[in-house]
């Protein structure tokens, strides 16, 4: 791998200082499971300063509570998230998504912030983070801000972060009493780039009336999407089969609407509809097949 300089900051403060002062184009590396692969393909980092923050896991790798929120450090690995008691309790859909990524080697090494910053449309964590209404904490020499999931990514493999921005945490509002489903459709059962993912959260009261519902499709759109109009279709009602079918239709119609008609649409749109209906039926304890 060719780089102009390689810098391994000793602390977050040191990293922020480096980001503020370094003159070369900046490439930030955490676990390296994407960057090192790109570096093998070409010399795109040859003139860059490679800032390796993986050593800051002590400061940036923790998973903790902050009042009503779950704070996941930027450098938490997918494996750590998948087995974190806090995540399993307050955001189990994210644990499921993280468990579905790649294979144990990658899950043990790759970080959640890296998965976000890489901005792959097929990144498995993004759909779960979107329905969780996660916010991404970003620090830069100018200060700190939080971005929503549908704001942080511009298009495939392009995030909206500036060169001196550093993701430091993910904030997720704690959820309790929700049912969840993360479904990954791949061409094989491990080491698989997703063909499509579905992430759904559902909360009903004791009468079966839906209090909250959120659903999205991943590996399909240029960036993580939330669909308040689709979500609203179930909220406040006791859904009948026709309502579920309407949601499935509406969700799958987003595919040609947003991504346009592509070669894959003929497959993805009906599959999305069928999977959505299956997931809703499962969540509502209806038809299992």
């Amino acid at each position: 791998m060719q780089v102009r300089t390689y810098i391994r900051p000793a602390s977050l403060a040191d990293a922020l200082h480096t980001l503020a002062t370094v003159e070369e184009p900046i490439a930030i590396i955490a676990g390296g499971t994407d960057v090192l692969v790109y570096a093998r393909e070409d010399d795109r980092y040859a003139n860059s300063a490679l800032i390796d923050i993986y050593g800051l896991a002590g400061e940036l790798g923790q998973i903790r509570e902050e009042r009503d929120d779950l704070i996941i450090g930027a450098l938490a690995t997918h494996a750590a998230i998948a087995k974190s008691p806090l995540v399993l309790r307050y955001a189990p859909i994210l644990a499921d998504a993280c468990r579905s990524i790649a294979a144990p080697q990658v899950r043990n090494h790759a970080t959640i912030a890296g998965n976000i910053a890489n901005a792959s449309p097929a990144a498995d964590s993004l759909g779960a983070l979107a329905v969780l209404r996660a916010k991404v904490g970003v620090q830069s020499p100018e200060g700190q801000r939080e971005l929503a999931m549908d704001q942080i990514i511009a298009r495939p493999y392009r995030n909206n972060l500036g060169p001196r921005d550093l993701i430091t945490y993910i904030r997720i509002p704690k959820l309790e009493g929700y049912q969840h489903m993360f479904y990954k459709l791949g061409r094989r059962r491990a080491q698989s780039i997703s063909r499509m993912t579905l992430a759904a959260l559902l909360k009903r009261d004791s009468q079966g009336v839906v209090e909250d519902f959120r659903i999205t499709v991943g590996a399909t759109f240029p960036r993580p999407m939330v669909f308040p109009d689709v979500d609203a279709m179930l909220i406040g009602i006791r859904p009948a089969q026709a309502d579920l079918e309407a949601v499935a239709k509406a969700l799958s119609n987003k595919i040609p609407e947003i991504a346009g008609i592509r070669a894959s649409t003929a497959y993805k749109q009906p599959v999305c509809e069928k999977l959505c209906l299956r997931i809703l039926n499962n969540l509502l304890g209806g038809d299992q097949q």
């Binding site: 294979a103 094989r188 059962r189």
Partner: peptide, 11 residues
Amino acid sequence: LENYLLPTAMD
């Protein structure tokens, strides 16, 4: 072998 898919043990 990222794109040319071979079965894994999970398959």
